[in-house]
Design a protein around this nucleic acid. Structure first.
Length: 296
DNA sequence: AAACGGTGCAACCGCCCAGAG
DNA sequence: GCTCTGGGCGGTTGCACCGTT
């Protein structure tokens, strides 16, 4: 089955590698070992030259991806836990689908992993709670029902939140704001499918042991995300924005969304200090952003 | 036991951007 | 200023696996 798929793909050639015939599809343990051995001893001054020098029939991009997503020794194995999930949600609310940026906040996780987890798990969870995954806001169809629902726990929690808000008159906004943070149900929501032990044995996922010598050859760039320059989140610091600032936040409930809150159409301009304040204001029980000690 | 549908995730695609010449 | 090249990243694809019928 897999061979069939790989053959089909091989016939297509590879655009980024020109005429070169390259292997595609899942990586074999032998290929993994070759790549790992080469990178650990030589690094990767140029990914395009890696396949040739490492003796691989792959394109440079494929090698880079394989290294980043699977072979890097600092990768964390296992499923994403609740704390990481909350971080993903919080950072995604601010940055949007900037998976690479989000992944920087999760040591050992890759952008691909974060992206997959978002699409397969978090997205559905948000939708099931009537939240728009792209904006984290209540979807219009759920706004009415939630506002009239007596069993809406988010609202009851939001009242607690109000006490720490600057302006108590912003209850409605706070309600919405909180509801987008606390999406985790009390009980752990796990992926529908358990990880199969068999899956860990398929060739592409065979672990290659990394000895101390190999690890010592790895530089920081390859192994560990640079937390000192996390991303460009500390961008344009405009005027301080607080949740209660009606010059920033739309008065109309329908106008309230995260983009408005952050005073930017694409959420790219973002006040880091406010992020912490805002996040604290929105979540009482748990604030992963604070735990992270965000430094912008 | 077999068929089917849903899901997770590895890998690829294609676009964008930065740097070099 | 332009073209080219390589790297990075978000989106998409499709196989392998699992649970259900």
């Amino acid at each position: 089955m897999r061979e069939k798929w790989e053959m089909k793909r091989d016939d297509m050639g590879h655009r980024c590698c020109g005429k070169h015939k390259v292997k595609r599809g899942l990586w074999s343990p032998e290929e993994d070992e070759k790549l790992l051995r080469y990178i650990t001893t030589h690094g990767h001054p140029s990914w395009s030259s890696v396949p040739k020098l490492a003796g691989l029939q792959r394109c440079g991009k494929s090698c880079r991806l394989r290294w980043i997503n699977y072979l890097r020794p600092d990768l964390k194995r296992g499923s994403i836990n609740e704390e990481e999930e909350q971080i993903i949600i919080d950072v995604h609310r601010i940055l949007g689908n900037k998976w690479a940026q989000i992944a920087k906040h999760l040591p050992g996780r890759t952008d691909n992993e974060v992206k997959n987890f978002w699409n397969s798990c978090i997205k559905k969870k948000l939708l099931s709670q009537g939240l728009d995954p792209s904006t984290h806001n209540l979807m219009p169809s759920h706004k009415r029902s939630s506002s009239s629902s007596s069993s809406n726990s988010n609202i009851s929690k939001s009242k607690k939140t109000t006490s720490i808000m600057k302006n108590p008159t912003d209850l409605d906004q706070t309600t919405t704001a909180f509801s987008i943070t606390n999406i985790n149900p009390p009980t752990t929501t796990k992926p529908n499918r358990l990880k199969s032990p068999v899956r860990t044995l398929i060739p592409s996922q065979t672990m290659i042991p990394i000895n101390d010598t190999m690890s010592s050859l790895l530089d920081d760039e390859n192994m560990i995300p640079n937390w000192s320059n996390v991303d460009e989140m500390a961008i344009h610091h405009e005027a301080p924005m607080l949740p209660g600032d009606k010059s920033v936040v739309g008065v109309d409930d329908d106008d309230l969304n995260m983009d408005v809150l952050f005073n930017t159409p694409s959420s790219s301009a973002f006040d880091p200090d406010f992020a912490t304040i805002f996040s604290s204001a929105m979540s009482i029980d748990f604030n992963p952003l604070d735990d992270l000690g965000w430094t912008f």
